[in-house]
């Protein structure tokens, strides 16, 4: 039960982050709540998978694929291109912590040489850098996956059940 509350709380903040970026990108106000919802659902998916001991890369990929699929559905309902929903919604999942540690790692690597922990520093930096890069790629792939799978030039040509 407590876990559920914690995950919902995370979902709320994922939504807040998505809405903030939607405002930064001047997303039309009428679809703001959709962006928040997508951000929350994607973030919750990612959090749930991490608690099931999946790697953070796989979890991010799953979350962003969900956002990609939902953005196509939202595009139909709201008559707007899918990317205006999906891009602000995946941004809360960017690996900010990994990128930050990667940057600090690079700075330290240039600063010290021949110290005892140089090898450890190198390992850590590489680990953080690879995670950051692969999570970013997973996010970009996940968002564009639905469009690639459906092979349509526009979501207007996609047949959902209502037409």
């Amino acid at each position: 039960m407590e876990d559920a509350v914690l995950i919902l709380e995370k979902g709320f903040w994922f939504a807040a982050a998505a809405i903030g970026f939607a405002a930064l990108f001047n997303v039309p106000r009428r679809v703001l709540w959709v962006v928040g919802l997508l951000g929350a659902l994607g973030g919750i998916t990612k959090t749930l998978l991490i608690t099931q001991h999946q790697s953070v890369i796989v979890a991010s990929l799953a979350g962003s694929i969900l956002i990609g699929i939902l953005s196509v559905i939202a595009a139909h309902g709201k008559h707007a291109p899918p990317l205006i929903f999906s891009i602000p919604a995946v941004i809360p999942m960017v690996p900010g912590a990994y990128m930050y540690r990667m940057m600090l790692g690079f700075i330290n690597l240039t600063a010290t040489l021949n110290s005892e922990n140089y090898a450890q520093l190198l390992y850590d930096t590489l680990h953080n850098a690879l995670n950051a890069v692969f999570i970013l790629m997973a996010l970009a792939l996940g968002v564009s996956a639905p469009m690639l799978v459906t092979r349509k030039e526009s979501v207007k040509n996609l047949k959902l059940k209502r037409n």
Binding site: A17, F21, P92
Partner: peptide, 18 residues
């Protein structure tokens, strides 16, 4: 002002998530 506040909240949201 609304953009500033919403983006600021997004920043706090990131901070919470990390």
């Amino acid at each position: 002002w609304l953009t500033l506040v919403l983006v600021g909240l997004a920043g706090s949201a990131f901070c919470f998530l990390f």
